[in-house]
């Protein structure tokens, strides 16, 4: 018994067991965290899927399916001012919430008045983007956008095609606009107009517009919605902000240059 009781031996066993157990527990948690977090934001993730074309708007998906399809996308954090990806690990990326960051004075910064065309006031430093990959290349990118509508804050996703110039889709999944009128922004008849429109010119300057009267001739024009002009004008402003130089613009320019 003396031999077993030696302090050194006790310490060794204790430390080894603690080390091995910590290793097991940490690895499991690290590996599983993104999946767990995906379940926590199922609704938002479902919206990303609809925007990316991985799910139909009217399709009822079990949470499990939402999560598994969602995990096919490559979630990355982008530093908008640095116009670059942030190399955070999967766990921290998955738990980033841009909505709470927007309220946090440390995680966000004010927008200068001349840039603030959508009257947002401030915006987060980092935004999550969802990359669609195929056969090694980039098939598309999903960009979260938000801004103040007529009655509420509208949240949505704008999807760009692999050339990062053309819009593939838009989906405004959360809003509190006028029922029956403002919610037509969720009507597929309107959102299909977005598909194929050029968000940028070839040189990268912003081209996106939702048309007002007098823009009838513009090929990139997306029609407004009768009776919901205020809501749609708000969307026009904040989408132009997010796609512009104070938003994703510089980052997308960098990405285009690289691929």
């Amino acid at each position: 018994m003396n031999q077993r009781e030696s302090v050194g031996k006790t310490l060794l066993v204790a430390v080894s067991v603690a080390f091995v157990c910590s290793l097991i527990v940490s690895s499991v948690v690290y590996w599983l965290r993104p999946i767990q977090l995906a379940y926590r934001s199922v609704e938002q993730n479902r919206a990303v899927l609809v925007a990316a074309g991985l799910a139909e708007q009217s399709e009822t998906l079990a949470d499990r399916d939402v999560v598994s399809r969602f995990l096919e996308l490559d979630l990355q954090l982008v530093d908008l001012d640095a116009a670059e990806f942030v190399g955070a690990d999967a766990s921290m990326t998955a738990s980033y919430d841009y909505r709470s960051a927007a309220e946090d004075p440390i995680a966000s910064r004010p927008i200068t008045p001349e840039n603030d065309i959508a009257s947002l006031g401030g915006r987060p430093h980092l935004m999550p983007v969802y990359l669609q990959r195929d056969d090694g290349g980039l098939a598309g990118i999903v960009l979260p956008v938000y801004g103040r509508g007529m009655w509420s804050t509208i949240h949505g996703y704008v999807v760009l095609e692999s050339d990062l110039l053309t819009i593939a889709n838009a989906w405004f999944y959360e809003h509190g606009e006028t029922p029956g009128i403002g919610d037509r922004i969720q009507n597929p008849n309107w959102t299909t107009q977005w598909a194929g429109k050029k968000a940028y010119h070839e040189d990268g300057t912003l081209r996106f517009r939702i048309g007002g009267p007098g823009d009838a001739a513009l090929p990139e024009r997306i029609d407004s919605i009768t009776g919901a002009s205020i809501t749609v004008a708000a969307i026009d402003r904040f989408v132009r902000y997010w796609l512009g130089d104070d938003g994703y613009g510089p980052f997308l320019a960098n990405l285009r240059r690289r691929s």
Binding site: V13, V17, C21, V25
Partner: peptide, 23 residues
């Protein structure tokens, strides 16, 4: 070692439970 036997057992059990809970 007999002196830390119980603690080690509880640690091992706790490890298993944490893993199962996370899974």
């Amino acid at each position: 070692p007999p002196s830390i036997r119980l603690i080690i057992e509880v640690t091992l059990i706790a490890t298993a439970v944490i893993v199962v809970d996370e899974v």
